[in-house]
Design a protein around this nucleic acid. Structure first.
Length: 242
DNA sequence: TCATTAAATTGTT
DNA sequence: AACAATTTAATGA
């Protein structure tokens, strides 16, 4: 059921292992980190729960601690477009947080997830006091810009295998999503929805990528063997004779 | 802890 | 879109 995730009511104190999965904590000075951790909250999101919605005033800077979220627009015509998948380690909403303007997109849980939230005032305090935090946010903005540019390229690809490969490469982005590691938990159905293909076609594409030794398909997820191959699409080259 | 059952996910047609 | 096969998660002794 599409319920609103109220980080105000359903929040709890982050567990130590959850703090480990928050990348920017590591770039803070001890005093800054202490203050940030004190204000940090996490919430459990069920599939379909909204983390933030278009038009709402920004209350938190959000991040994925565990699970998988998706970012999508709310078209006036009712058609919604998925902009990006958000795997663990991804933090978002800094644009609206900086300007204190309403969110421009929805973020919804695809699967059972743990969402982190840093109150917007603490976010601004860190911007004012921490060099490391500023570097992190700046890098975050820059990398995300690159992602959206890449996403436009992906949309124009006609080869489904290439689309799946490039989308996966985006989800395995080590700077934006350091929490992913080399195993991404995502079902083929979820991936199909993100990429905009049928599950059958995604299944076929994954088989190709596995045959080309770029990934290993596992139950409920996949492991990346050769990230560069996913980016470059060298597997789509004509197969040499065995 | 183990066996059984239900649910989720995958591979194929 | 439908189906069977496989894997995981949940349940209860």
């Amino acid at each position: 059921m599409s319920q609103e995730l109220s980080l105000h009511q359903r929040r709890r104190v982050p567990r130590p292992e959850e703090l480990q999965g928050i990348p920017w904590l590591a770039v803070l000075q001890p005093a800054e980190r202490e203050r940030a951790i004190k204000m940090l909250v996490v919430g459990d999101a069920q599939p379909g729960d909204y983390v933030c919605r278009t038009g709402r005033a920004p209350t938190y800077w959000f991040g994925v601690v565990e699970g998988l979220l998706k970012m999508n627009t709310d078209g006036v015509d009712g058609a919604s477009m998925t902009l990006a998948g958000l795997p663990p380690g991804g933090w978002f909403g800094e644009g609206t947080a900086v300007k204190r303007e309403p969110y421009r997109y929805n973020v919804q849980a695809i699967r059972k997830s743990v969402v982190g939230g840093l109150p917007i005032d603490t976010f601004h305090w860190l911007l004012d006091h921490s060099i490391g935090f500023n570097r992190f946010v700046m890098s975050q903005l820059n990398e995300r810009l690159g992602q959206f540019i890449a996403a436009r390229e992906i949309d124009r690809l006609t080869n489904p295998d290439l689309r799946v490969a490039r989308s996966l490469a985006a989800l395995f982005h080590p700077l934006l999503y350091p929490g992913v590691g080399d195993v991404l938990r995502i079902t083929q159905q979820e991936l199909a929805y993100l990429v905009g293909l049928s599950r059958q076609r995604v299944n076929e594409a994954l088989a190709v990528l596995q045959r080309e030794k770029a990934i290993v398909v596992e139950y409920g997820g996949l492991r990346v063997i050769d990230l560069e191959a996913l980016r470059s699409g060298q597997f789509s080259a004509p197969r040499r004779a065995a």
